[in-house]
Nucleic acid binder design. Sequence first.
DNA 1: GATGCGTTATACCAAAAACGCATAACGCGG
DNA 2: CCGCGTTATGCGTTTTTGGTATAACGCATC
Lengths: 116, 116
Amino acid sequence: MSGREPALEVRSKIWLEIDGEPVFGEGREELLRLVRKNGSINAAAREMGIPYRKAWTYVDAMEKRLGFPVVVRRKGGTGGGVSTLSPQAAALLDKFHRLKKDFNGLVNRKFLRLGF
Amino acid sequence: MSGREPALEVRSKIWLEIDGEPVFGEGREELLRLVRKNGSINAAAREMGIPYRKAWTYVDAMEKRLGFPVVVRRKGGTGGGVSTLSPQAAALLDKFHRLKKDFNGLVNRKFLRLGF
DNA sequence: GATGCGTTATACCAAAAACGCATAACGCGG
DNA sequence: CCGCGTTATGCGTTTTTGGTATAACGCATC
């Protein structure tokens, strides 16, 4: 009815904050998942295609804001070092995963097909 | 059962993109609303508490991406100039407002009380 | 007990983006 | 034709982000 409309698309996202600062979102979630899988921040960063520096900054910021260890890391030793998720971080990761899944399902069903 | 938990809060937002670039979100919505109300980009910026430069950049970027005029502006003349919303922009504004309202209602009911 | 290795950790420089001030352009009213 | 307040834009500054280089570390091996 109205001339051709631009290819607008609706986007949305959900994340966690603490004191107004983001602590947990899409990217950090994937990072932690890969750390758990690989036992290494370095390997996780490589697999994500981001520089190690950035990954480390993510982890550091998360810990500062959350106030508890997120990644238990050891430098040196066998293999040069190793990193594992803290139990609290693992729990948070799973919790957030469920939250995001519900959220995405809801939003996709509800909005993306409304022909905006 | 688990010691004291940090004051995590769930946040989310919705916006419009075109070719992966954001065109319409919280801030731009308010800006356009104030432009409509005041008939001036300048006054809208003042009321929003952002520099005029920034407001103008917003409008300019929106128009470049949307491909149609968003704010019909005239410089010079009575009062120094005047700006009004284009009909298309006004329609988009209302549409987005409803979308956001639904979205927020949904999210608030569904997630924010789940005691994350 | 010295050395090698691959990781964590951090310093530092470069690039990019955001910010803000200054100034030009404009057109109607007086 | 001058003043006024708005739109429009150039440009230097500041802040953020990105990426490279280098140090610190500790176990295994020799």
